[in-house]
């Protein structure tokens, strides 16, 4: 009796293992949460210093068009971030719009039209594109795209259009591979049913497959935008880094990331110039948060429809 009682009351080896596993998992989770939280607090603390200790009004920061942190005007440093914000958004949106038709076309080739060729040729090509470091894209942009722009549009060739072309190649694999996943998750029955009703392949793709996969494709777009928005090096090499409101697509402009990467080495921690850069970093962080939220919202709405 006692033996049975004992074996029931004491923990078995398996349950001990389970507990140990749980503790390890929770510790990993806690560690990651802590790191994310620490990053948030640090960037927010530094980024908000522009407004709290340097007394720059937040509207002047978001709406001002003059970026010259070394100069003070009426007692306030000139830190208008609108040119960079506009530049970042313009490049992101243009690159994504440009990549979208290519991505959907490629993805359809891979899932519905020629799946064999898709997995054999297109998949490795896309993976290769993902693996190329961004500095290589930037370098190619600097030596090929920029002179090309210069020969067609004149000026220096640097600008939003050059950045768009470089980012287009960079976000294409992200959007394509996620669109492929979305298309693959459309149940086969849908396609079969559509074909059985007498629809052509084009009609099936257009009216059934793409419609069903819309939430997935939207998620792919947002992911692509998030990548484009955060890309620093490649864009910085071709955009020209002029903190001016973009007046044309082929005139030098700047993005949040390009101003950050070029400026951070020339400022001293704790000065207005440095704080202003941290504020730009804060905007980047908030934007990536917004992109994440958008992805969750889309996923939720997509579920409801089904």
């Amino acid at each position: 009796m006692d033996k049975i009682r004992e074996s029931i009351l004491t923990k078995s080896h398996a349950s001990k293992l389970e507990r140990r596993g749980k503790i390890i998992s929770f510790m990993c989770l806690g560690g990651i949460c802590l790191i994310v939280l620490a990053i948030f607090i640090f960037i927010a603390y530094r980024g908000l210093a522009t407004f709290t200790s340097d007394h720059v009004s937040i509207f002047k920061f978001l709406g001002g068009t003059k970026w010259n942190p070394e100069v003070t005007e009426n007692g306030h440093p000139l830190v208008g971030a609108l040119p960079m914000i506009t530049g970042s958004f313009l490049i992101t949106i243009l690159a994504t719009l440009l990549a979208l038709p290519f991505a959907i076309g490629t993805a359809l080739m891979m899932t519905d039209i020629t799946p064999k060729m898709g997995t054999r040729i297109l998949q490795p090509v896309l993976e290769l594109l993902v693996g190329i470091p961004s500095v290589v894209y930037g370098f190619v942009g600097l030596t090929v795209v920029v002179p090309f722009m210069r020969s067609i549009f004149g000026g220096s060739g640097f600008g939003i259009l050059a950045g768009t072309f470089v980012l287009f190649v960079m976000v294409l694999p992200t959007i394509t591979s996620m669109t492929v996943d979305a298309l693959k998750s459309v149940p086969k029955d849908y396609r079969s049913a559509s074909l059985a009703l007498g629809a052509t392949r084009w009609q099936t793709i257009y009216k059934v497959v793409l419609r069903t996969a819309t939430p997935g494709i939207l998620t792919a777009i947002v992911f692509g935008m998030a990548r484009a928005f955060g890309e620093a090096l490649a864009v910085q090499m071709v955009v020209g880094n002029a903190a001016l409101m973009p007046t044309s697509l082929v005139a030098p402009a700047s993005t949040l990331t390009s101003v950050l990467t070029t400026g951070i080495g020339n400022t001293v921690l704790g000065t207005v110039q440095n704080d202003a850069l941290w504020s730009l970093a804060l905007i980047l962080l908030l934007m990536s948060l917004a992109f994440n939220l958008a992805i969750h919202l889309i996923a939720k709405r997509g579920e409801l429809k089904r």
Partner: peptide
């Protein structure tokens, strides 16, 4: 074509070459 704001070369150029005038905003390289 300017160097990045705060770069040593730019600060020296503006101070000595432009007599402390500041360059207008333009494209910047690091």
């Amino acid at each position: 074509v300017n160097r990045t704001q705060g770069s040593g070369t730019r600060v020296t150029f503006e101070k000595r070459g432009l007599n402390k005038a500041r360059s207008i905003a333009s494209q910047e390289q690091d």
